[in-house]
Design a protein around this nucleic acid. Structure first.
Lengths: 148, 148
DNA sequence: GTTGATGCAAAACCTTTGCACCGAG
DNA sequence: CTCGGTGCAAAGGTTTTGCATCAAC
């Protein structure tokens, strides 16, 4: 797991310590590709080591975020979800407003808009933090089936 | 205020009641083009009628959202902001991750992506609910000035 | 007069913080 | 051995809920 080494390096550089808790949070994030809430992460961590506290999870996540290892975004139900930036291809999310499901899309899809926004508003789009709301395939089919 | 009539109509249709509180929340939203938090809305409403309760504001906002009069999005600081959909041109937001400022952009800017997402993922983008994170003009200038 | 909406207070969440103790370096 | 990190508990902030009362229809 390369992110572990990277974490260790960043920590050393700042006189911070590598702990089992941080390692576990990192590993859990690694295994949850779609992102997870702090609570979900805690549950996974607890299955490895039950005594870990939610506040530790939050502190680890904040730390990882400040090291650009993790990014957070607001998922459905207004819940904050955290996701490893290092392992997966950079990507954005499609979020269904009906069923809440998240899909992943390639960043290239957004290149055109990004360029446009830079030109028109001098705004640097950070697509990897982006959640696009809408209605997913399944839900829109259900809807049209229901109204038919 | 056309949205008032629309609200009245929707309410009647559902056997719900038009109340001074709902009217006030609607009017305040009308006067806060950039959107506002429940708390901010309450403050404005309180200046008209001090006894109104925060929970009433929340209930009104939930109601308006379910009637598609209002949309909510997560602004900077993870706060939920509410915005009238009816009066302004439909638009999306640019949100600066550095300074938190919100800009408004035209929906047409997103037409290309919307079409692409529909084609590739059969996902119906609801651009009017969209908040695009990134770095604004001012902040990116500051940054390059600082590093120079 | 009915019954939906309100205000109030309390609960329910989620996230952060203070502090004594523990353990990574 | 030192000082940064942890667990625990408590506080903070926001949103929701239960209930008696009020007022729109």
């Amino acid at each position: 797991m390369c992110c572990e080494d990277r974490l260790a390096a960043e920590l050393r550089q700042r006189n911070m310590r590598m702990t089992p808790q941080r390692e576990m949070v990192l590993r859990v994030l690694h295994d949850l590709p779609a992102g997870a809430t702090a609570e979900e992460i805690l549950q996974q961590v607890a299955s490895l080591s039950p005594a870990v506290d939610l506040s530790t999870v939050y502190r680890s996540l904040d730390l990882f975020e400040s090291l650009d290892l993790v990014s957070s975004y607001n998922g459905p139900n207004n819940e904050r979800r955290y996701e490893l930036l290092t392992i997966h291809q950079p990507h954005a999310h499609l979020q269904c407003q009906r069923c809440g499901k998240l899909q992943t899309i390639d960043l290239q899809t957004l290149d055109t808009v990004a360029a446009e926004l830079l030109g028109s508003h001098r705004f640097i789009l950070r697509s990897e933090h982006l959640v696009l709301p809408g209605i997913c395939h399944t839900c829109s089919e259900q809807q049209s089936a229901a109204s038919a």
